[in-house]
Design a protein around this nucleic acid. Structure first.
Lengths: 341, 341
DNA sequence: GTGAAAGCGCTAACAC
DNA sequence: GTGTTAGCGCTTTCAC
């Protein structure tokens, strides 16, 4: 940059102003400087810029447990898109649901002076992590960890209740549930929906076979196996969780259980193949695209808010958005009678 | 940091050395400094560090067309994992296959002084982009763009030929091919495999219905539709591309075409549901985990090489690794006779 | 409207 | 071993 200045016979300050589009430099000169910079193939050093202008939007952090599932990759994609248009770069870190790793990564993001973060917290987030998060503009999604921040979540309760009622209406009374552990924020939500459905259907919750596990594919397989191995296995199974659903579907398939004649199945999540599978699975879906868009926008507005008002922690959890989950009836749920037929 | 130094009555240089584990500081002092820093909740500024130590491994760039497909997300996940262990942060950018956007993002990564990049080039990469890439330690994967850099690719030729021979052995002669455009590096490779299979099977290539398209899901749907709408539609269809396969499978399903009795289908890629679908699809798979691991390791070794040797452009394309694709026979391919039966 | 100079937070010579 | 000092490449007062 100092070279540019010399070659043009101006000061570095002027170059800086021209490149940043400051109005206080003669338009003609500014253009000349920009052209010369372009011609020379000059690329400003973001690091120096961020260091100098002590507050910057050079980077934001994106912290997720996994990237290979649509629930998270949609948010990654959307953030990358919007932030890129904003001139901000996204540092992606993957926790694999390990709280220690999460804390470590949060520290490093703070060290990089990220302007903000978007995070799907790990299952057992550490207090130290929460503390780091509370000092920055943060948006959380999918999972809430009890910090004072805006977020975007799926509203599963209603669809869960509907799923129970749907099965009950088909004559099922032994309905199994495979869901995420209550330690995750969405575990209790889905369970609440299930309870409500059970209640409305006049069934007995205590009698229902149930497994609550950490949301992984292998747990889905394990949980489904356990439920199916019961003395009196359920005639219908509701899975409340994306990864769990994939595992459960796999287990059912491997056991060559006929769906829906031997077992009615309701899965959770949006992989396109749920609809493509044969029969198309009855499923509870959330528009991850919608959720992602909201989350990304929220983050950007938070960044802007912070910049102007410096409101800091005040601008807290007032903006929590919910994306409703919906029950889609496919061909994997059928009247109980069909089982004996 | 200057505060830390004052509080401990030492110089900032000593603090810096202690924090970086320099051997030239008394161990006891070093520990005291680290403890104090910890207690004060001090986090070093990576930006300043990277700016000062003029060469740094603070950041690397990861540039991919999409993130919601296992071919790319696997690499993202693996890089994030390995780099994180390495103390390096990954800046992720998504090109959506747009060359302009790609160039823009590469510029910004250079501006952030990334230590290196890992990239799956967009379809029509610009010369300016190549030029930027040639100045850095770069690893490419999935697609080659003709720069002098190591890379990891799938070796599809053999499996493609096998697929043709498999179908030919089942009696099919009108075999359709839906593949990626020849402008992508893997388009010609797969086509070459196809040609070889056709030749070995004693079929006539010119007679084969074929569509070569940009690899997107919607193109998969469109291409399949076009092939199926031909006056004499193929009795077997090979799809050479992950996204194309999903679209094609969708189209076939929507048309309620019976597989394999009405159409034999070979898809490409590794989504778990290909195997779970009914019937399980015959497919050409690549171990994306393996590919990802190799790519990530290659990047890290490139970073280290650069640091010590400063060999620069010399350390070029000498390290190209291939991960073999494999044909798995599922239930979606059957003898031609079955069609009339 | 433009230049000179101070400084962002750190590292790396170089002295002692 | 440790302190002093000069930068890294920018932005941003403050003068002019």
């Amino acid at each position: 940059m100092v070279e540019l200045a010399q070659e043009l016979g101006v000061s570095t300050a002027t170059v800086s102003r021209a490149l940043n589009g400051s109005p206080s430099v003669r338009p003609e000169l500014a253009q000349r400087i920009r052209d010369h910079a372009e011609a020379r193939g000059y690329v400003a050093n973001r690091l120096a810029r961020a260091l100098s202008a002590n507050v910057s939007r050079a980077f934001v952090g994106c912290v997720i447990p996994y990237v290979d599932t649509p629930a998270y990759s949609a948010v990654v994609a959307e953030c990358a898109r919007l932030l890129s248009a904003d001139g901000t770069q996204m540092i992606l870190t993957i926790t694999e649901n390990d709280p220690e790793r999460e804390l470590q990564q949060l520290k490093e993001l703070v060290a990089s002076r990220v302007a903000g973060m978007i995070i799907a917290p790990s299952t057992h987030i550490l207090d130290a992590s929460k503390q780091l998060l509370s000092a920055l503009p943060v948006v959380e999604f999918h999972r809430a960890c009890g910090i004072d921040a805006p977020g975007v979540f799926s509203a599963d309760e209603h669809a869960m209740a509907e799923a129970v009622l749907h099965l009950a209406a088909l004559g099922h009374t032994r309905i199994g549930y495979l869901g995420t552990t209550e330690k995750l924020s969405n575990g209790p939500v889905r369970l609440r929906g299930l309870r409500r459905g059970v209640e409305l259907a006049g069934l007995d919750l205590d009698g229902l076979p149930m497994r609550l596990l950490e949301p992984t594919k292998s747990n889905g397989q394990r949980g489904a196996a356990e439920l199916l191995d019961l003395d009196r296995p359920p005639t219908a199974l509701i899975v409340g969780g994306g990864a769990l659903s994939i595992g459960a579907a796999q287990e059912v398939r491997e056991r060559r259980i006929q769906v829906p004649s031997e077992l009615s199945l309701v899965v959770y999540g949006d992989p396109s193949w749920f609809a493509l599978s044969d029969p198309p699975l009855s499923r509870i879906t959330v528009s991850y695209e919608d959720l992602a868009r909201r989350a990304a926008r929220l983050l950007i507005s938070r960044l802007e808010g912070r910049q102007s008002t410096r409101a800091g922690d005040g601008a807290g959890a007032d903006d929590v958005q919910l994306v409703p989950a919906e029950l889609h009836i496919g061909g994997s749920t059928a009247p109980l009678a069909a089982r004996q037929g």
